[in-house]
Design a protein around this nucleic acid. Sequence first.
RNA 1: GGGCGCAUAGCUCAGCCGGUUCAGAGCAUCUGCCUUACAAGCAGAGGGUCGGAGGUUCGAAUCCUUCUGCGCCCACCA
Length: 892
Amino acid sequence: MSLSTRYNPADIETRWYTHWEERGYFRSVPDAREPFTIVIPPPNVTGVLHMGHMLNNTIQDILIRKARLDGKNACWVPGTDHASIATEAKVVRWLREEKQLRKADLSRESFMDYAYQWKDKYGGIILQQLRRLGASCDWERTAFTMDEGYYRDVLRVFVDLYRRGKLYRGRRMVNWDPEARTVLSNEEVLYNEENAQLFHIHYRLEDGADGVVIATQRPETIFADVAVAVHPDDPRYAHLHGKRLLVPLIDRPVPVIFDTYVDREFGTGALKVTPAHDPNDYELGIKHGLPVIDTIADDGRINDACAYTPIVGLDRFEARKRMKGILETSGHLVKTEDYRTNIGRSERTNAVVEPRLSLQWFVNMSSLGEPALRAVLDEEVRFFPPSFQNLYRTWMENLRDWCISRQLWWGHRIPAWYLNSEPLHQETHVFVATTVEEALDIARRETGNTALTAADLRQDDDVLDTWASSWLWPISVFDGFEKPDGEFAYYYPTSVLVTGWDIIFFWVARMIMAGYEFKGRRPFRDVYFTGMVRDKQRRKMSKSLGNSPDALQLIDDYGADGVRYGLMSSAAAGNDILFDDKLCENGRNFCNKLWNALRLVKGWEVSDAPADPDAARRNALAARWLSGKFQTVLRDVEANFQSYRLSEALLGLYGFVWDDFCAWYLEMIKPDFGAPIDRETLETTLDLFSGFMVALHPFMPFITEELWHQLRERAPGDDCIAQHYPRAGETDNALVRRVETAKEIIAKVRDLRNQHQIKPKEALELWVRRNDNTDDLLREPGLREIVRKLAVLKSFEPCTDEPDDSRSFIVGADQYHVVIEREIDAEAESLKLREELAYQEGFLRSVQAKLQNERFVSGAPAQVVDNERKKERDALERIAIIHALLEKYANP
RNA sequence: GGGCGCAUAGCUCAGCCGGUUCAGAGCAUCUGCCUUACAAGCAGAGGGUCGGAGGUUCGAAUCCUUCUGCGCCCACCA
């Protein structure tokens, strides 16, 4: 035998991937077939393959390959996301570490040059890596969110929203990342409970009298205070009406204001109001007409507006530390207490987010949310699992305006222009258009100054939030804005989106909004949410924790099919998966099992002479049984695909191939050692085997393609990837049941061998005493031969009396006897029988209790009642048999 | 503070519009096998009163109530 006993995936996988690509199987162009479309969740252009990608893309590939085998025009669009802030952070670090350059010292143009250099060098590695996994993307469609056409679409949408009044520029309290020096959306801020200190600080009254003690976390911001707030009904502070307090150290007077917003229970019941540095204070400030003093710069340092010079220029945390000492010395600090509070940090830089008043661009979400919410509630867009509807709904019902500007360079520069003559960062004239020429026209019209030239305008410095481009992904990759009647009309809406539930708000919700807002239609029919991949301690796998295995190493170790199996075998939709190499090991072992099944069937001598009648009957029955089981499995597979229960589908096929095919069928038809197999049986087996390969192909594409070709000589183009998925036919259930009974008999005989330490090769006699009510198994041609072969029997015949020296077992309601010429331990046998009797009697009682219940007999469906009657008959029969056997042991 | 979800074998989970194949799968464990496809394997076996309590029903892992213990999302009281 020339084939190795181990399956070696390495060379096979690259060979077949190249073959598929060369033959153009991944390519899709519109034709008469029904389309099946998936757009990849575009990974960060500078990303590398991690476990989450592997899971996600394996699922997409399974769905795409299944659709392709089902005869659909399967189109999987790959691509990458420019990932504005994440990529810019990487580029900045790279410049600092490799080129000793600081972003601040570079012009926008040269920074972008470097960024593109970086992108050309490291970008798209992940797309290469996806090939190793077997991803059957249409690579000719590879898209990038900053491609020329995509860029154009993003600007077009910006202008469109602006003109329709759904986009505005405004000064708002925003989340500021002082490290990246950009605004963040609410979704980019992650809150976690952390240790903090509450400072109790004494504010004197203007007239020198004892004032109040306020509690604050941020003593460094007291110089931005513009008021102190108390509850109007708080008797402790009633005397403060009309009074002013002095900000410590600088003695600037601030009014006392009264507002029910203040919680009397918290701290001292008195609150310093700092509108520039706290969103709630900002609201209070507006309500009470207070001024704003902004003492923190965009980098998180105390700025010149702070009237207390000793802390100017310090970082806010350094300033806080300093303030503690200063206030202690000055006698203003009453006490500090430790407490736990939620601190918001930037998702990307982990910097503590600074609430900051800033002029930004916002999308008004009120009209976008409505249709997108309804689509999901009405299941026009279906979620798998559906429970994510809840999460989606709570978010969509509480939409707030979306801040889409970012103070970054890497991204889509905002298509808005301002007059050079007007100050920066002020709410001035703005001209929104996709090109500067157009903006100039608008500027001339609106200002009435026809002498304006492009030189009088300057473009907005900011770029757009990454998600303000990726929300157009399903539309833009098919050029749906430029050519709505082209490919877009064929491929859109896409069939299914496969993504992690962690970006349901960032991306999924916004794509649905964009779909309805710009195209009036859903972007996808279904959304399959994957879980997070976690380690055994349930921690999310991440690079920073270092708990994520190297994806490519995993493929090297277990083969792509092995890894795919490992991920899929425990990945129900929406459920997190606890990843363990063991899972991949199972997958690798399964590959090896398939490989060895191939070695077996390819190793037989073939005979053109017909098989002897016993073998012919046996093999024919085996094939009918196996193919019946296969039909059942296929029906389950179809149902599971319909509801995206992919792991169930895979496990069903796995069990079928391993147990039914390898453990039972191949053993049934396996010729005696050295003997040839008849051609008919072999051909049937090769056909069945080939069919399983097609059925398994979506899950394990490489090995199935390899075996498909090893099983038979195939004409060029006759590849597994391009077959028709087997359609489930009828199953002969009665026949399948008989063979299942035969398997039970075989297992019982094997058990007796185990118990009595009888060598596997020692042939035994088996006798059956049938109950009149039961199915006559021996009537089924071939069944007796199957039992004789697998149980290794000399004979298998009916009898009326029990033979000597026999051990007995019961299957159904029939009694079986195996002749074993060894001394019987009557005591032990009796004990076992009495245990069995007790169980059967208990079972009988429960069945009879039901049958004697009038309401059960009249209330339950006839089928259920009949079944209980059958159970009762069988139990009575079994009990009778056990009694007879006990009798025998008692009176030998 | 508001909301959602989960609890089934030692571990990870499936089953959950009630009744046949309802107590399952994989891994782990135990026993025996290097049996000429495969030790990455083969043949067997043990293991759970389906978190607790109550209710609905002829019948509950499955539906309802409640308790307990976890997890997550949203909000953000200085």
